[in-house]
Design a protein around this nucleic acid. Structure first.
Lengths: 174, 174
DNA sequence: TATTGTTATACTCTATAACTATA
DNA sequence: TATAGTTATAGAGTATAACAATA
């Protein structure tokens, strides 16, 4: 074969349909790129990108149970145990006893955890700017907005026990 | 079930920032949902969603080598062997000898393979309509277009690094 | 000696099940 | 009996290395 291995044939999907037109392909490429970059940015955070999600979600509201947290993020409860072990050892979260149920633990973010969240958020914003580098500012806003709406709907399908999550949050807030 | 599935917890990120605002979270949710749905839709296709990508890419142009195909789709060459084994056994692709290099095999899609592509594409379109269900027609077009542009750039970064490797090897060999 | 494709091995996740302490 | 959290085990998926044929 003549010519470079990967090269100028990148995007000539004019005649026959090709993979660049595929929604699944595009999602996979963007998702893998984002994961790779965020793993680099968050390499010194216990749990990496998923640890960041746990940290931000746990800090976004009043302390809630491990299982609630796991369901909100679609993380298996056995995995949540390991993630929280590492985050707690790093002093970023605390497991507190639930006064209403001695089996359960409430997850609270420490001051150090909140400081770390801010630090990581700044780093991520710079990284995201690079990933969305081909879009103008208004296009980035539009893309974020549309993606968020698709995600909200997908998440409502994904979380089978959304009702339980709602009940849990309402119970804790009263 | 004690209440509506999609409820009031959907979006109250007004005060503190929460995970729904996170680009990584949204990408992950949408990607997982898409993978799950497409695995169901393509369950009877060897290799599932990845087999579909191999099939469409191999069929989009003249037959090319396994390694080229693998690099274009960011699939490990050892995995490509298994995928092609299954696709060939199902009669969807053929391994042809490369007249210019007896080590290499050119991957050609059979007529049955092309028919299968069309069938699967129709199924996928219906599924994608559900995943993007919350958007209007024009919003879906906008989302696809923006996502594709982000993906093309992200892919060029991956490909670029691959080219760097090639260039590096060529530089060292001269 | 380097490269294509294959095969075999090791490692990393994740899912599953079992166990405790509570309810 | 069922549930929250933990621990242990098994499976799937992936990466790594070794191999044969060819360049």
């Amino acid at each position: 074969m003549s010519g470079p291995l990967v090269g100028p044939e990148a995007a000539d999907c004019t005649a026959a349909p090709c993979v660049e037109d595929d929604l699944g392909w595009a999602l996979g490429v963007v998702f893998r790129r984002y994961v790779k970059e965020s793993e680099a940015v968050l390499s010194d955070l216990p749990g990496g990108p998923r640890g960041y999600q746990v940290l931000t979600t746990a800090g976004s509201d009043a302390p809630r149970r491990q299982l609630t947290l796991a369901q909100q993020l679609s993380i298996d409860r056995t995995v949540m145990t390991y993630l929280l072990d590492d985050l707690e050892e790093a002093g970023l979260v605390e497991r507190q006893p639930d006064p209403t149920d001695r089996r359960a633990r409430l997850i609270a973010v420490t001051d150090a955890g909140r400081a770390r969240i801010e630090e990581m958020r700044d780093r991520l914003q710079g990284m995201e700017g690079q990933v969305l580098g081909g879009l103008t500012d208004s296009e980035r806003d539009a893309f974020r907005s549309l993606l968020q709406r698709v995600a909200m709907q997908a998440d409502s399908v994904e979380v089978q026990s959304a009702c339980d999550v709602v009940d849990e949050l309402q119970r804790l807030s009263t």
